[in-house]
Amino acid sequence: MKAKEITLCAVLTALALALSYTEQFIPLQLAIPLPGIKLGLANIVTLAALYLLRTKYAFWILLARCFFGSVFGGGITALCFSLLGGCLALGVMALAKKLPFLSIYGVSILGAAAHNVGQILAAMGLMHSIYIGAYLPYLLIVAVFTGLLTGAACAGVLRVLPDAYISLPAEMRR
């Protein structure tokens, strides 16, 4: 990787980590008492990377975020959860982005839902239990709202970003 690529990926990884750290101070669980409920703010970075950069950069940023996130707190269990959820979300969003009738909002909602599906799958594997799947419907309903929220946040960023983005190296742009 060239210096510019490494730098941009590092900055976006740091941003994603900062967002997931900030997220724990937002007491969403008080309003919706379900385990694993969160806004998924770090997904804003994945989403923005997917819209601005080639998919491989979004993937590297995601991997680095999951890895460092588990180093700074959470441990190996959290790594399984965020990797499975994050990779599934990225895969679904990359595919959904190709659908001509979806805007960034639809892509974001599908990504949030895929993230929940991945986490429930990880929990099923970890707990050796399919009953945890009974939580999925509730998580999916919440995902529609959190997906809309992160989609709106990302759309807001992308609306004001293009001027700065012109200075990206051509090989990183999509």
């Binding site: 959904a96 805007s103 639809g106 892509v107 909602i109 529609v144 609306r159």
Partner: peptide, 18 residues
């Protein structure tokens, strides 16, 4: 970057899965 009618399909798909 604008919400489109097609996005309702995404919401419907997620709710159908739920």
């Amino acid at each position: 970057l604008r919400f489109r009618k097609g996005d309702i399909l995404a919401i419907a798909a997620v709710l159908a899965l739920a």
